[in-house]
Nucleic acid binder design. Sequence first.
DNA 1: ATACACACGTGAAAC
DNA 2: TGTTTCACGTGTGTA
Lengths: 529, 529
Amino acid sequence: MDDLIISPSSSSSLVSLPHETQPSLHQKLQFLLHSQPEWWVYAIFWQISNDDVHGTLFLSWADGHFNGTKDISPRLSSSSTHHYPPPPDRATFINGIHSLINDDETTNICNDLHDTEWFYVMSLTRTFSVSSSSSSSLPGKAFTSGSLLWLNSERELQFCNCERAKEAYLHGIETLVCIPTNHGVLELGSSDLIPENWALAQQVKSLLGSDLNPNPIPKQQPHNNPIQFFDNHNISFADIGIIAGVQEEEQEEDDKSQSRTRARIRTDKMEQRSKGKFGYADSDHSDSDCNNPSIEKRTPKKRGRKPGLGRETPLNHVEAERQRREKLNHRFYALRAVVPNVSRMDKASLLSDAVDYINGLKSKIEELESQIQKDKETNNNNNNSSSSNKRVKLEMADNTTDNQSTTTTSTEDQQTTSSSSGSGIEVEVRVMGPEAMVRVQSEKTNHPGARLMCALRELELGVHHASMSCVNELMLQDVVVKIPEQLRCEEKLKSAILARLMGKKKQDAKELNDLFKQLNYLQEKSKPI
Amino acid sequence: MDDLIISPSSSSSLVSLPHETQPSLHQKLQFLLHSQPEWWVYAIFWQISNDDVHGTLFLSWADGHFNGTKDISPRLSSSSTHHYPPPPDRATFINGIHSLINDDETTNICNDLHDTEWFYVMSLTRTFSVSSSSSSSLPGKAFTSGSLLWLNSERELQFCNCERAKEAYLHGIETLVCIPTNHGVLELGSSDLIPENWALAQQVKSLLGSDLNPNPIPKQQPHNNPIQFFDNHNISFADIGIIAGVQEEEQEEDDKSQSRTRARIRTDKMEQRSKGKFGYADSDHSDSDCNNPSIEKRTPKKRGRKPGLGRETPLNHVEAERQRREKLNHRFYALRAVVPNVSRMDKASLLSDAVDYINGLKSKIEELESQIQKDKETNNNNNNSSSSNKRVKLEMADNTTDNQSTTTTSTEDQQTTSSSSGSGIEVEVRVMGPEAMVRVQSEKTNHPGARLMCALRELELGVHHASMSCVNELMLQDVVVKIPEQLRCEEKLKSAILARLMGKKKQDAKELNDLFKQLNYLQEKSKPI
DNA sequence: ATACACACGTGAAAC
DNA sequence: TGTTTCACGTGTGTA
């Protein structure tokens, strides 16, 4: 089973990476999941960084939605996914994701299928600290201990003190396997109960362990032919020049985990051989050392020292830089996941909004602490005095809010930003200090109250007061919300609310939106270069 | 004094930028601070962006730590300071900054020295909105008014209504000067009391005003020799070819503030002339258009159209990219400023720490809110022990809501089905004919309005009227809904609503919301075809 | 000497 | 069409 790793036929028929700079990790995991039975629901490769563990998610998606492997992490990150072959049934995949994402309120989240999907999609945003991970996270434990972890519902899956195992169990995972490799942990999950399988672990270890060190390959593949591996250039993961260059420096990269993939083998020849499987043309990419003349320049055995050394260092450099970018992007996604109201979707505004959000949180904490302090004082006062004190205080608080709202209504709509945007929804926003008054007028259908409230919740705007009345098929809503500092602009607030309202409004057009996205996704992927 | 700007000897002896892509702004400011006496503690150039004002901090650092000028903005971000001459004592400088940044909690911030340093280091993170900056921020006022501001402790420094001036005064700044230029405001600060110096202002204006527009140079420097400036290539900030290229397109960059430095003059010749001062070798950098043959290729007047056009667009591209990087870096500094305990001075770990910090803040807020809730409950219990539980709550509701609730309170609680179910949610339902009144009382957290509305939407109950008010961490909602015939039973209706209110796994909802945002980002990124 | 982190220019892609 | 954002490869300084 483990001879599949570098067998010529499998490697030539499997790989279809149109981009020669794509690390072979993706392809290897893809191949691994292809060679696995269908009961693996997902596979995550947790790459061990120098300070944390972030996951590269490969979905097997064998539970009916998508049968194949898929790396969705670059899809979540960027729209440039030209390294991957187009999956065969992307529509159902996207639909699955979107139905999972969009109807967060309406659908049955407790469904086992959705729950499982939810679990592993959310795994993307998790990062585990290596230092503190030995007790809390399962991949961290597997990595630090170096031992295979095979948990299923019969054996310590729900009783494991690792919170990830418990979470997986709660989300319908019956079997959870963590296989440590040299530079990461492969985590496999299934909704079936799968007994322990040592061959799988060995295959994974040899496959992913060979990513860094080509030397243990002859040891770990007992009955394969290394002569062919080194003779035939067309079937190896890399040609001999690179292999030799890697072999020269492997002794000092075993102990250093942070140089985990700097000698990651380039798959130039594999790409060349496998092109055309999905109809990819050999695009003339700008790097010049991966063409045919370069191969003739690299293949000479003697005097290969100079090109081997001359090309090895920038190759590692390129790879390291790639990984650095990837890690930084993962951090960006993590930050984007925890920061609400990312106004514009670019990195700079994400950072700016994160700063604003942090400041808002700080001020909120301050306010809450002062309130707690005040509450304690009033509590003491209440305990000392009668209960009428609290009544008065409550009424006073009530009056203050009412005063604010009345002042807002008394000052008329001279500077309100009103907009009637097509489909019968009018939104007015007035910002006054830390609060804003939102007035939405729409038709009564399609539960406008729920839509507005959900929109406000998505924006994390606390509702101070709301009143919705409906007159004659017209629904009028007035909401006073507390707004964070970053949304003080009326225009931004209004557009944000309106976007959420219209997005929810097109509940039926959600599928259309999905089609859009999937079409775009299709075109992005089918147009790889 | 102001003839120092473009005097050949000074420019040739000053500049030592080994990297030809460095914009000349840095060098100009560096030169400016070098030419200044030592009592200027710091200098910030506030660049006017399209949406904010961010500072480029040049430290004079004359107070004992570092005697020289230093642009610390890229140094806080990266360790690569190869554009700048290596400062003589970078170690102490870095140590000073690090000790300043790291122990923001522990050390004696109130020390005057540290305080001043802290002030101008923190100035890096400040951004002033141009629109609202005319009253609040000093650089904004200087920029919009276009007039020089020279404040010291004798004159309106602490009495200025600009908060930056007050802040500077509180941090030990005795003199604060803001000099507006075409594309930014130079702010100088000193801990000494410095009388007004018009020559300095003029020097700054001519020096920095010539950065973008070479044309107003003869106007702003009255007694300098522009002939020499345009004749001798070796002493000008750029050669004539570039100057001409800038002149060709200056008419449309005056009105557009966002393209403020897109024609920033490249300092090829200066670099060539100044190399070797600090022992930098002329590294064969990969860009080929900055060597000697390129200058001969650019200087021809005729047929210069094609290289002028053919190189103008990538030049703008390069400049735009530079600005983008600069902006992003400034956002990074801002983020670094608000996140404490940034373990390593790395971008990736900064992002990771920011995520952790945000999560910590969120959990702290949650905990505080729950504590407030608990305090309130105990408070209520204390009140209940003395008075009747329900009466108080009903009176609270009575005070907050409008006349409609008075009718409900008049009809007492004899047939309403009220339920207090654990987690602070109370639901009352009264069925009257084809409508029902639902009253939900819960804590304010977790968006109860959205939850109730979504619950009603799931039950397909049309909302006729709703009013939600929030009193002191308590949210009271009154909804009048239209009910179908099969839900006429109050108990069934109440239990259905309650189940939907309670049934939502909050954590999943929150995570789903996060993921929704993330996916929304993806969705917006992938264009709707 | 090597890994790492950053900036830079450039091509491509999306509004 | 132009503006802007992003990723990539590369050069370089620092630890």
